[in-house]
Simulated assay, not measured.
Amino acid sequence: MEMFNNRKRNPLSAIDASYEDPSVEAIDTIRKKIEANTISEGSNTLSRLDGFEKQLEEREALLKQKKNNIKNIIEAQVGEECKRLKDEYDALKVRLESEYNKCFIDMKQTTYSFKHQLEDQHNSRSADLERQYKSRITTLEKALLEING
């Protein structure tokens, strides 16, 4: 009840009331139209209100169109950027695969070369060892012949 008495002494303006209930704004517009019809020059005021509402509707439609245009531009730019990034990614991927394949081939060639170097070293040492052993055997055989002989 205290709230009612407070409102009675200090009534809300239409603006304050519209914050509490949006339908108050619509009711206020209807009230203005009714008042406009009852006062002198009412039809002129009503006509101006109607014109103002039409302007608002036109501006709202224009804003919606601009919003849609901006949205479409942004979507197009995002699409182009995605395509550019995908193309860049694909190019980098191809370059990386090419570099990987080159490195792989280089490693195979290096491994092949090392294998043959090791085989050559092994064969060379084997031949040296074989000569050394034959030389020692020959020396031992000569020593045995002299002892037996």
Rank of each mutant, 00 (worst) to 15 (best):
T139P: 03
L140T: 09
I147A: 04
L85R: 01
N72A: 14
E60C: 04
K108Q: 15
E119C: 08
A76N: 08
K142H: 08
L145S: 07
L46Q: 03
E146R: 04
F114C: 13
A61F: 03
E97H: 03
N72R: 14
E99R: 12
E58N: 13
L140G: 05
C103K: 14
R131C: 15
S98N: 04
N123P: 04
D120N: 09
E119W: 12
V78I: 13
N44T: 07
T45Y: 07
N68T: 06
R125I: 09
Q121H: 11
Y133P: 01
L63T: 05
V78P: 02
N101Y: 15
T45D: 05
R125M: 09
E75A: 01
Y133I: 10
L92A: 03
M107Q: 14
T45H: 07
E53A: 06
K134Y: 10
R95P: 00
D50F: 07
Q117K: 15
E53M: 02
Q65H: 06
D106L: 10
H122K: 15
A91S: 06
G79R: 02
L46M: 05
Y100V: 11
L145V: 02
D106K: 14
G79E: 04
A76C: 03
Q117V: 08
Y112I: 08
A127R: 15
E119L: 10
Q132A: 15
L56R: 06
Y133V: 11
G42W: 05
K108P: 04
K71A: 04
L46I: 00
Q132G: 08
I105V: 13
Y89G: 00
N69V: 01
E146A: 04
L129W: 14
S135E: 06
Y112K: 15
F104A: 15
S43F: 07
E58I: 12
N148L: 09
K54D: 04
D120K: 14
D87M: 03
S126Q: 13
I70D: 01
L129E: 15
F104M: 15
A61V: 03
I147Y: 00
T111H: 14
L85P: 02
K86N: 04
N69I: 00
N148A: 13
N148W: 06
R95K: 11
L62Q: 10
A76L: 06
N68A: 08
L144A: 12
T138Q: 00
N69C: 00
C103Q: 14
L118Q: 06
K54Q: 07
I105G: 00
Q65Y: 00
I73P: 01
N148E: 12
E41R: 11
N69Y: 08
Q132W: 10
G79M: 03
Y89M: 01
